[in-house]
C-alpha cells in the first residue's frame, strides 16, 4: 500500500503539488491523469523520493520514506521499480547488462543473475536480443528492456512515468499488456502517469485526476462503467465517462 499524506512540492516559489493525499491499494493498477503541468509526474516521483515533498509524507507499507537514512532509502528503492518515457537505458551496456545492473545493485546472488536476466527477458519477449545494444532496438523494444530491468529484482511496486508517450498506438497496446500481465502474474502494484485517456482507460482499475497540482477526483473504472468516488466537475473525467459509456 502506498499513501501520500498531504504532500506539497514547491519549485522556485511555485506550487507544483498542493496538499495531495491519496492511497493506492496493493495490486491496483492506478492511473494518474491530467493535463501537462498538472504535477502528475512530480507526484509519481515522490513515491520513490526521486522528488522529495516540501511538506507531507510518503508511506510505503505504512513506513515513512522521508525519514529514512540514505542507505535505508536506497534499500527501499530496490523494491520499487520504475520506467520512464525516454526509457533511460544505459546506451553503452548491452540489453543483458542493462538488466543485470539492477540485480548487481540489489546484491542479487551472482550465480543466479544469468538465469534471472534470461527469465525477465523471456517475460518481455526479448530473449533473442540480449547481446544487442539499446541503439539497435525500436522504441517498444527499449521499453520492454526497461520493464525487464525494473522487475528484475522482484519489486512490489512499479512506477511508470508516461511509459507509452513516445510509442505508436500498436506498440502502446503491447507495452500496456505487458504491464497488465506483470500486475496479474506477480501481483505488482502499478502506478501509471499518462496524459492519454486511452492508456488509462484500457488497464487502470482506479484513476486520480490532477489539475494544477491538486487532486480533482478519484474514480474506479469497472468493467461496466465508471463509478465516481469523489466528484468534481472536470473535463478529463467527463471524457473518461463518455468513453466508458
Amino acid at each position: 500500500m502506498i499513501q501520500l499524506k498531504t504532500v506539497s512540492k514547491k519549485f522556485n516559489n511555485e506550487m507544483a503539488i498542493q496538499d495531495v493525499s491519496l492511497t493506492i491499494q496493493k495490486g491496483d493498477i492506478y492511473g494518474l491523469i491530467g493535463p501537462s503541468g498538472a504535477g502528475k509526474s512530480t507526484l509519481l516521483r515522490m513515491m520513490n523520493l526521486l522528488e522529495r515533498p516540501t511538506t507531507g509524507d510518503v508511506f510505503i507499507e505504512g513506513k515513512s520514506l522521508t525519514n529514512l537514512s540514505n542507505a535505508k532509502l536506497r534499500e527501499a528503492r530496490k523494491s520499487i521499480g520504475m520506467i520512464f518515457q525516454q526509457f533511460n537505458l544505459v546506451a553503452n551496456k548491452s540489453v543483458y547488462k542493462n538488466i543485470e545492473i539492477a540485480l548487481e545493485l540489489a546484491n542479487f546472488p551472482k550465480s543466479e543473475r544469468k538465469a534471472r536476466v534470461e527469465e525477465c527477458l523471456k517475460f518481455v519477449g526479448l530473449e533473442a536480443m540480449q547481446h544487442k545494444y539499446p541503439a539497435q532496438l525500436s522504441g517498444g523494444q527499449k521499453q520492454r528492456v526497461a520493464i525487464a530491468r525494473a522487475i528484475a529484482n522482484n519489486p512490489t511496486i512499479l512506477l511508470c512515468d508516461e511509459p507509452t508517450s513516445s510509442l505508436d498506438p500498436s506498440t502502446t497496446n503491447e507495452i500496456l499488456s505487458v504491464l497488465q500481465s506483470i500486475n496479474q502474474t506477480f501481483g505488482v502494484t502499478i502506478i501509471i502517469v499518462s496524459h492519454e485517456m486511452d492508456v488509462i482507460k484500457s488497464i487502470c482499475t482506479r484513476v486520480s485526476v490532477l489539475s494544477e497540482g491538486q487532486l480533482y477526483e478519484t474514480v474506479d473504472i469497472m468493467p461496466l462503467g465508471i463509478h465516481t468516488i469523489e466528484a468534481h466537475p472536470q473535463s478529463f473525467v467527463d471524457a473518461l465517462r463518455m468513453g466508458g459509456e
Binding site: 520513490n48 526521486l50 536506497r74 527501499a76 530496490k78 521499480g81 520504475m82 533511460n88 545492473i101 540489489a106
Partner: peptide
Amino acid sequence: VIEAAISMG
C-alpha cells in the same frame, strides 16, 4: 539515466 540509477537504489 542518472535518475534510473537512483531509482534502482
